[in-house]
Design a protein around this nucleic acid. Sequence first.
DNA 1: TATGAATGAGTATTCATTCAT
DNA 2: GATGAATGAATACTCATTCAT
Lengths: 192, 192, 192, 192
Amino acid sequence: MSDTKDTILACARDQYLSDGYKGLSMRKIADKAGISATAIYRHFSNKEELFHRLVKKGFGTYTYYLTPALEEETAELRFKKTMEYALDFILEQPKYFELIFVKSETKDELANFDDLRVDSKISFDFYTDRINECIAEGYLKDDNASEVSVLLLASYTGFFALYTAGLLPRSKKEIRALYWRTVERIMVGVIA
Amino acid sequence: MSDTKDTILACARDQYLSDGYKGLSMRKIADKAGISATAIYRHFSNKEELFHRLVKKGFGTYTYYLTPALEEETAELRFKKTMEYALDFILEQPKYFELIFVKSETKDELANFDDLRVDSKISFDFYTDRINECIAEGYLKDDNASEVSVLLLASYTGFFALYTAGLLPRSKKEIRALYWRTVERIMVGVIA
Amino acid sequence: MSDTKDTILACARDQYLSDGYKGLSMRKIADKAGISATAIYRHFSNKEELFHRLVKKGFGTYTYYLTPALEEETAELRFKKTMEYALDFILEQPKYFELIFVKSETKDELANFDDLRVDSKISFDFYTDRINECIAEGYLKDDNASEVSVLLLASYTGFFALYTAGLLPRSKKEIRALYWRTVERIMVGVIA
Amino acid sequence: MSDTKDTILACARDQYLSDGYKGLSMRKIADKAGISATAIYRHFSNKEELFHRLVKKGFGTYTYYLTPALEEETAELRFKKTMEYALDFILEQPKYFELIFVKSETKDELANFDDLRVDSKISFDFYTDRINECIAEGYLKDDNASEVSVLLLASYTGFFALYTAGLLPRSKKEIRALYWRTVERIMVGVIA
DNA sequence: TATGAATGAGTATTCATTCAT
DNA sequence: GATGAATGAATACTCATTCAT
């Protein structure tokens, strides 16, 4: 709705992107947004809420990356596109990824906000749904879809952690290739 | 030798455990240790060094958990024990795990300390060594050991992330069981 | 406009006056101004800037003392009034004098601020201009005006140093008399 | 007597030389001297005394520079050599000069130490003595020797202040030449 | 809607100094 | 003579937040 509100959120995201959590100060955000620090309080009741909205937006972006996968024709294709778009998200929005999947600040700070746990669950369920589809379609073997989701999401999340830790190649080309080889190794155990 | 130095480090660890990175303030650590804030500087030249030592200790603890696996007789057993002890580390020292594998603060703050990157590498190589052994022994099929390490470590790290994100069951019994089932699913693709 | 800003500056000046450079702490200034230490940062971005403004004000005050000399009719009178007002400045604003002419802290701390070097130069040139006028008018003999300035300013500055060092009489009456006798002795060498 | 005591003093001098007054911290001095900070207190009861000894040494060095002038045959030569050696002192020991003649910290900090005022007086009297000699010898005209000292010392001190303020040429050759021309201009008024 | 002024608590760090050994 | 450990007070500065306008 409010233009300024979005601006603030965008600046908060950029600030987090460039300086990490400790760069997320009301003043710095305000400076970046070209308004006074106090003005933020017109739009968010406090830093906690602002951060909450930021994480919300992170989840939204993630969903925005994944949903196009639903347009594919077969369950198998939807699944594979999901894996691909998830990789895109990692590589293009690493800070958002970190914000919503990795950071414990997020968890501690936002323990009160139940809706975020719901968002978490939704992202998780997106995988489970894809896998259930694939089982139904016969592409994946009959297994506990939720646990296969755990496997895939865990690999995915951890892959990113190793990537940012500098233990994996930095070039996007190489990392993409390694990602797919890793996925393939996993798929051996779950493909029908 | 220096008792206080260890106390400080222990308190820093506890502080990090309870309040995360932003709880790691010199004063809070000092308070917990029952000394004055300035006394810390007798033992660590600044916060950076203190944090560095803390991460170092994290790596040390991790190694301490894994190395007993080397006492097993066969490569297969050494590998399996490694997986088991790694799980123990996650469950018993979750904050240390986070400190050394996940946190991006760690990375930014300690970018200068090359030795930590070496420690990272060593932890990684421990897996690669186990896998190479298993390939040699015929337990795992002939594959790129380093990439199989990536797969295993990524799953392991990500599994933890999901766990702390509250997406996995909290009971230790259940989480252990789920861990092993996840490992098994992965192993299908790599076992000979 | 900003009242507080001026108050802060005045208190900083007083603080410097009573405790010297090391008395110039943000907290002490704030205490004296009756505001919180942090409030200062609303008006000055940091101590360096505050100090810079202070020195600026010192130069301004100096100029404020000297410029009325320009209203005199002849070059000789303008010169003599300059000498007189300069003495007034020494006796009435000794700390400002010290701040702008003597202190090496000033130099180190404010090395970046080129405008201060300009201010220095302007004060210096004020003398040179007076002397050039006097040479033109025939009151002073034809000499290198800039070097005569050096002579006069050096004597003037040094006279003050001896004064604050307690090597000269403390009574204003006596010091004034001695000042003029010293000036006269110098003038012998430069008067036409 | 004590070797360490001298080392400490020398390091304090160097520290002051490189970092100015605020560089004069007990720890930094101790570090430079290769001893513990506490060890200093074996030799000086506190910082004030240490600083006092330092200023004392500054006066000693000044005297050390000037006294060879006494070896000259005539009063005129002794006077001229005094002027020359004083210039050497400025150019070779600028920080010592500042320490004993310019700095108000010195004065504030050491207000209690009467002996320093005596040292000040001695330096001053050295000039007065030279001038009295010159008057007796007929080189200088009959004048108030003490006031001529004021004139000379003031010019001398101020000349240095302008020099360090960057208002005079930085090259030693030029500054020497300018010094002598300035002295000559002054001498016109006092030579017989 | 927005701002400027202000605040109190908090940050890391440095300081001179003391004390027990 | 010297040290290591410790301290309390001080340093400049940042933070989220409030309030009056």
